[in-house]
Design a protein around this nucleic acid. Structure first.
Length: 607
RNA sequence: UGCCCGAUGGUGUAACGGUAGCACAGCAGACUCUGGAUCUGUUUGUCAUGGUUCAAAUCCAUGUCGGGCAGCCA
């Protein structure tokens, strides 16, 4: 018996290099040698788990890094201490590493743990630059490397803010949150300048220092850029750069009580890390002028990063916003962020989806600026294609129906040979015990078969996979009239290699030997929502699929006793499964990743 | 009714002024000791109207429709 693990190194069909409008831009920059090296980054905020939409972004950013000989930094965009947590930085780090493993892990830019930035001179100007360490090229164990954190740059970002004040393009504003809103105006009406806008540089400097020193309560003052309150672009109407927040930060602790806003921190973090291409989603398009404005206002000696935007992923039959996913978790509607029904990376992983399948999916859907909804069938196709290549075939019965082979001697046991994966000869073979009493799938017998049904029926014949052709002689029912047992006779010469092995019968079904079968808790997952666009109308939770999880006690062939985590098993004719983290020796728990394509179900549906 | 962005079969994408192609889905068939896989065939499309051009999905104009932007969130 041979069980070749089907790890992430299983061969994949080579796909042509992807192409899209962002890669076109990068390729042009490479050919004109605009940068010494292409440098992207993946900058999640650690306020939730990564989902398949992030996977799209990860594949883009790391894909560009690997295709153009560059690096992609993993960076925690952690400028809002009230929403963030180390639980999320840990899960994010793990998910990213898992997704890029065997593909772009040699492109992963990290930094030595605890390393701090120091001022240096570049072209005669002071500069802050934090080059990446590649995790797999580093001689140190990877535990000495960690992701980048925007919060590691708070001191530098503060210095840059001071510079803006000195240039008189930033000021401390005393307006309340409500007044700030009112003064901002609306998209079709210009805003109004704050009465504090004309403070002297000295006063601004003094006030900003005192903000940093904790002299003012939350919300009392902000630092604002001095732009144009009449700009048609809301984000150019004196955007807030810093706010006061007296709260503990998961990474910097109690060191700061003022925190930079996204717009201020992000472009500077990109610059500090030497990012060349800062790729984000479409909603940041209107922020780009601000991104450029900030960087251009400072005397920065190195090339400036540029922002490019693409459409985020929307996928049918699920929700993608972190807020909604958080709601599902907190309200106990799923078992956690890694519930196998969740579109999170950890959920998909627990479900049995491989990094390869997710990367194939990202490749297939492409990168554009068009906001569409991707058919979940594309994801399902990518999962099936990948799992078909690597899944170890096993026989298991989800809803058992007892079958007695009346002409097979009681007590006799045969060891039949079965192939582990017809797609992969290297996967080897295993032995399957056969005996007089078996279980077959309840669905594989119909007393009154519908048209075109070619499984077992009274008086009919069917082949037991790897074993004999059997004929149904008798149907035994319980008091309620339910079929509880079948009495069959086998064509004892029809076994593989036997004299009548070549006999054609229309149907082949799976089975397990009753005496040898092992029990498993099998979790059958389905789509989390019943409609393609759960958040199109009303409360998305009203569209939750009540049948998204069904648990059955399955009868499995004995070799499944040795099932390993992170390995894909195909229960023949049924679906792909993987061990759940709740599984333990003696108590198998398996998750259904996805069903096999079922043309019969479709045929039956038509009637 | 301000500004920005977008629009190619049912869905997602390609074509970079020169034959509208690919994938998924669908449909039909072949093959099969998985109604799996594989293979073959096939239905369906350039938002509209003008303009530029020998030639427009592509460039221009106008319109229509869709998305984004008014957090001291990211």
């Amino acid at each position: 018996m041979e069980n070749k693990p089907s790890g992430p190194e299983a061969p994949a069909a080579p796909a042509p290099a992807p192409s899209d409008f962002i890669r076109d831009i990068v390729a042009a920059h490479v050919s004109e040698k605009k940068y010494p090296q292409i440098h992207t980054r993946f900058p999640p905020e650690p306020n939730g788990y990564l989902h398949i939409g992030h996977a799209k972004s990860i594949c883009l950013n790391f894909g560009i890094a690997r295709e153009f000989g560059g690096v992609c930094n993993l960076r925690m965009d952690d400028t809002n201490p009230t929403k963030e947590d180390v639980e999320y930085v840990d899960s994010i780090t793990e998910d990213v590493k898992w997704l890029i493993s065997g593909w772009a892990d040699d492109r992963l830019g990290l930094k030595p743990k605890g390393m701090t930035l120091e001022a240096q001179q570049v072209n005669g100007k002071p500069d802050f630059y934090l080059p990446p360490k590649l995790s797999t090229l580093s001689p140190q164990p990877s535990t000495s490397l960690e992701p980048f954190y925007a919060s590691d740059y708070f001191s530098q970002i503060y210095e840059y803010a001071v510079q803006l004040i000195r240039k008189d393009v930033a000021y401390v504003d005393d307006l309340s949150a409500e007044d700030t809103d009112t003064y901002r105006g609306s998209p079709d009406h210009p805003g109004k300048e704050s009465p504090f806008r004309t403070r002297s540089i000295e006063e601004n400097l003094d006030l900003f220092t005192r903000m940093k020193n904790g002299e003012f309560p939350d919300g009392a003052r902000t630092l604002r850029a001095k732009l144009d309150m009449a700009s048609p672009n809301i984000w150019m109407r004196d955007p807030i750069l810093y706010r006061i927040r007296h709260s503990e930060h998961h990474h910097t602790g109690g060191q700061w009580c003022i925190y930079p806003m996204y717009d201020f921190a992000h472009c500077l973090s990109d610059y500090i890390e030497g990012i060349t291409h800062s790729i984000c989603t479409l909603e940041f398009e209107v922020h780009r002028p601000l991104y450029d404005w900030i960087l251009q206002r400072l005397d920065l000696p190195r090339p400036l990063p540029h922002q490019y935007e693409f459409a985020r992923l929307s996928l049918g039959y699920t929700v993608m916003s972190k807020r909604k996913l958080m709601q599902l978790v907190q309200e106990g509607l799923v078992s956690g962020w890694d519930d196998p029904r969740m579109p999170t990376i950890s959920g998909l992983r627990r479900r049995g989806v491989t990094p390869q399948a997710l990367r194939d999916f990202a490749y297939n859907i492409g990168i554009t600026k068009y906001n569409g909804i991707t058919d979940v069938a594309v994801l399902e196709y990518c999962i099936r294609e990948d799992l078909n290549r690597r899944g170890l075939r096993r026989l298991a019965v989800l809803r058992p129906l007892k079958v007695v082979i009346t002409n097979y001697p009681a007590g006799q046991v045969e060891e039949l040979e079965a192939v582990n994966n017809p797609e992969d000869p290297n996967a080897g073979k295993r032995k399957l015990p056969f005996s007089r009493e078996l279980f077959i799938e309840h669905d594989d017998f119909k007393e009154v078969p519908p048209p075109k049904y070619f499984r077992l029926r009274p008086g009919g014949e069917v082949r037991l996979k790897y074993a004999y052709i059997i004929k149904c002689d008798e149907v035994i029912k319980d008091a309620a009239g339910q079929v509880v047992e079948l009495r069959c006779t086998a064509d004892l010469d029809s076994k593989t290699g036997g004299t009548t092995a070549g006999r054609k019968v229309k149907g082949t079904i799976h089975w397990v030997s009753a005496a040898h079968a092992i029990e498993a808790e099998v979790r059958l997952y389905d789509r989390l929502f019943t409609v393609a666009e759960p958040d199109a109308t009303g409360d998305f939770k009203q569209h939750l699929n009540p049948h998204s999880l069904e648990v059955v006690a399955a009868k499995c062939e004995p070799s499944l006793q040795d099932a390993q985590p992170e390995i894909c098993y195909q229960f023949e004719r049924l679906a792909y499964f993987t061990l759940d983290k709740n599984s333990a020796p003696g108590k198998l728990v398996l998750n259904r990743t996805i069903t096999l394509k079922d043309n019969w179900a479709r045929e039956a549906q038509k009637r």
